[in-house]
């Protein structure tokens, strides 16, 4: 089965010394390239099934740092398993579609085939399964909606029903869980709010109640946790922040303290970002740290779209290059207006 291959251009990366409280951008680029290049120390066995997700995390981070074009070129694409010889799963489908979108290569896809695969995973109650074995989770609702929207094929599924299922997972605190009655969790909240944003159904969110729950996630150190009484973790800089932005409530937290927290989780020597200060870095947290800083408008980073988790320019390219698709175009317009509104609020 063909997969994505990308080539890393062997360019010298400038050596710079960084101070505390500053984004060590070049070090992070170097770190990402080193692990994308030789996967032998990339917890290769355990992470083997996540190769496609790893590509998305690494490449999106490079793009946010403004280094994607300089460092990479796509050689070959196709296929949607987590790795060669693995079955297709909706988790990897999204990562593959996102990576192709990054490289403006969506045209290599058999879009009908991919969208049929995804729409075939929708259940009667509107939920989505992750694969043919039927594991149901609001994560898959997000992935399905996000993928189909990027491919301009949202009409392939019952969107109203998909929205109804997500709404049935809303809790007393305004948050969302993985299934109806499941505990609110910032990661699941991102998925539900993201899917509702993409489908133009954010009116189902109790924005003030959820906004308060989300901003209660900021702890004394400035970092964010994902549930009450849990430790802060850099990955929630993405899940919580993006949700707050989508519901226009991001100014309710202390941005300065959060920036400081994320910067404090960098490895200033070798690059990369960890979950908490002084822990080991990994590609997952490096992506979430840089993406979080991008949402916080940290200087020098490209802007990232909070719903699609892709750089803004990529999202614009997806929606404005396809003028024949009216519903998606109007969605993109709505999102732009939303963004202007956020700017004025702040």
């Amino acid at each position: 089965m063909p997969l994505l291959f990308y080539h890393i251009r062997p360019e010298a990366i400038p050596k710079t010394r960084y101070l505390m409280g500053e984004l060590a951008a070049d070090k992070h680029v170097k770190y990402i390239i080193s692990i994308e290049k030789k996967k032998d120390n990339f917890e290769s066995v355990v992470m083997e099934h996540l190769r496609m997700n790893g590509a998305y995390w690494g490449l999106t981070t490079l793009d946010l740092l403004g280094k994607l074009d300089a460092m990479m070129e796509v050689l070959f694409v196709g296929g949607f398993a987590g790795n060669i010889g693995h079955d297709p799963h909706i988790l990897y489908t999204l990562s593959a579609v996102q990576v192709l979108a990054l490289f403006d290569k969506l045209d290599v896809l058999d879009i009908d085939k991919v969208s049929n695969y995804i729409s075939g995973l929708q259940n009667e109650d509107g939920s989505f399964s992750g694969d043919i074995w039927g594991e149901v989770d609001t994560r898959f609702s997000y992935i399905a909606v996000c993928c189909l929207s990027i491919l301009h094929r949202l009409d392939k599924v019952d969107v109203d029903n998909a929205v109804n299922y997500i709404v049935s997972c809303k809790n007393l605190d305004g948050g969302f869980g993985c299934t109806p009655g499941g505990e609110s969790h910032a990661g699941q909240i991102f998925c539900c709010v993201g899917a509702l944003a993409i489908t133009g159904a954010l009116h189902h969110v109790d924005k003030d109640l959820l906004g308060w729950w989300l901003c209660e996630r900021q702890v004394k150190s400035g970092g964010l946790n994902g549930r009450p009484e849990k430790l802060p973790d850099v990955c929630y800089s993405w899940w919580v922040l993006s949700s707050l932005i989508m519901i226009d409530r991001v100014h309710w937290i202390s941005k300065e303290k959060l920036v400081k927290y994320i910067l404090g989780c960098q490895d200033l020597e070798n690059g990369g970002i960890s979950d908490r200060p002084d822990d080991a870095v990994d590609i997952f947290h490096t992506y979430f740290g840089v993406a979080g800083l991008s949402l916080l408008e940290y200087p020098g980073l490209k802007a990232i779209d909070p719903a699609y988790a892709l750089p803004d320019d990529v999202v614009k390219r997806i929606f404005f290059a396809h003028r024949h698709c009216r519903s998606d175009l109007s969605l993109a317009r709505r999102r732009l207006l939303l963004k202007l509104a956020v700017v004025f609020c702040n």
Partner: peptide, 8 residues
């Protein structure tokens, strides 16, 4: 053309 090989 396996540019990225995982050394399992």
């Amino acid at each position: 053309d396996p540019v990225v090989l995982i050394d399992y």
